[in-house]
Amino acid sequence: MEQRLDFYKANPAAIKAVLGLEERIGKSGLEKPLVELVRLRASQINGCAYCIDLHTTDARKGGENDRRLATLSAWRETPFFTDRERAALAWTEALTLVAQDHVPDAAWEAVRPHFSDAELVDLTLLIATINSWNRFAISFRKTPA
């Protein structure tokens, strides 16, 4: 597979806007391991090879263990994730697959007890942002190095 275009070079102003979202996410109170799990799970759903590679590497660098990374796509069937992480992963799946179920009430009811209002906005921004990155990488065929 060959890269279609380098979106960083093609429109630096557009990428700067997305990087501004990343800056906000970095200043949020969300735990770094949780952030990487969310990024990785959305990227798995979207089938973004570049982002899966990147966020698996980043998660490992942040101390994430291989067992949790290996079972992330089956998080519901494992005991390896906290209730807060499970709620965030369910929210991630609901927002990433928004066209399927339009974020059902069950997803909201699952996430609400585990996050403050501000954290829910930050979590939603995180999910929207990684979905944006996935769409850039997939559409322009960015592949892992």
Rank of each mutant, 00 (worst) to 15 (best):
T56V: 12
D58T: 09
D58V: 10
A59P: 07
R60I: 11
K61C: 07
K61V: 14
G62C: 05
G62A: 15
N65T: 10
N65D: 15
D66E: 15
R67I: 12
R67A: 13
L69S: 01
L69M: 02
A70C: 11
A70F: 10
A70G: 15
L72T: 05
S73Q: 10
S73R: 09
S73G: 13
A74W: 01
A74I: 07
W75R: 07
R76P: 11
R76M: 12
R76T: 14
R76G: 11
E77M: 01
T78S: 15
P79I: 00
F80A: 10
F80W: 11
D83N: 13
R84M: 03
R86G: 02
R86H: 04
A87Y: 00
A88Q: 00
L89Y: 01
W91N: 03
W91I: 03
T92E: 02
E93G: 07
E93K: 03
E93P: 05
E93D: 12
A94L: 01
T96N: 11
L97D: 13
V98P: 09
V98M: 13
D101K: 13
D101T: 13
H102S: 13
V103A: 15
V103Q: 07
P104E: 09
P104I: 02
D105S: 15
A106Q: 12
A106D: 13
A106E: 13
A107S: 14
W108H: 12
E109V: 07
E109K: 13
E109F: 00
A110Q: 14
V111E: 06
P113M: 00
P113N: 06
P113E: 03
H114W: 13
H114M: 09
H114D: 09
F115W: 00
S116R: 06
D117L: 09
A118Y: 00
A118R: 13
E119I: 05
L120N: 12
V121I: 12
D122G: 11
D122P: 09
L123V: 09
L123R: 04
T124F: 05
L125S: 07
L126K: 06
L126R: 04
I127G: 05
T129N: 15
T129S: 14
I130Y: 04
W133T: 06
W133Y: 07
F136A: 06
F136V: 08
F136D: 02
A137R: 03
I138K: 11
S139F: 06
S139W: 00
R141N: 15
K142L: 14
